[in-house]
């Protein structure tokens, strides 16, 4: 029974490994299909429902650590307890700082405002 299972598991594992190696070179399109809906798409009627946490998760989380967003990025500084005001965060997001690029062309006004408010609140600012 276990031997038979092993004969199934073995090629499956190698197949998965081969597919993932191929995808390292081909791109993440297959697995990225279940990516959360981009924040800019979460709008209804005349009001904006942009979630700062969602913007953070899709745009900032890979580089920054912030518990409130479940983010553990280590490329940039941790935002845990940094107590940044929303205006400061907005400016950094728009202009960039150090190695961090400007996001002014990549995020809408509403997204910048939302993520700034979220980071400010989550970091104790």
């Amino acid at each position: 029974m276990l031997e038979r299972l092993d004969r199934i598991v073995a090629p499956t594992v190698w197949l998965v490994a081969a597919v993932l190696v191929a995808m390292l070179f081909a791109g993440p399109q297959i697995v990225a299909e279940d990516q959360p809906t981009p924040p800019s798409a979460k709008k209804s009627g005349g009001g904006s429902t942009v979630s700062g946490k969602a913007v953070f998760s899709t745009t900032c989380a890979s580089c920054h650590t912030l518990t409130a967003a479940g983010a553990v990025g280590t490329v940039g500084p941790s935002l845990e307890g940094v107590q940044l005001g929303a205006e400061t965060v907005e400016r950094i997001v728009r202009e960039g700082r150090g190695l961090m690029p400007s996001f002014s062309g990549r995020l809408s006004e509403a997204e910048v405002n939302a993520v700034a408010a979220f980071v400010s609140q989550a970091s104790g600012g």
Binding site: A32, D34, Q35, S57, T58, T59, S62, V75
Partner: peptide, 11 residues
């Protein structure tokens, strides 16, 4: 490799 920084898959 230039890290995408944006790939998010959750399975």
């Amino acid at each position: 490799h230039d890290p995408s920084g944006e790939l998010s898959f959750t399975l």
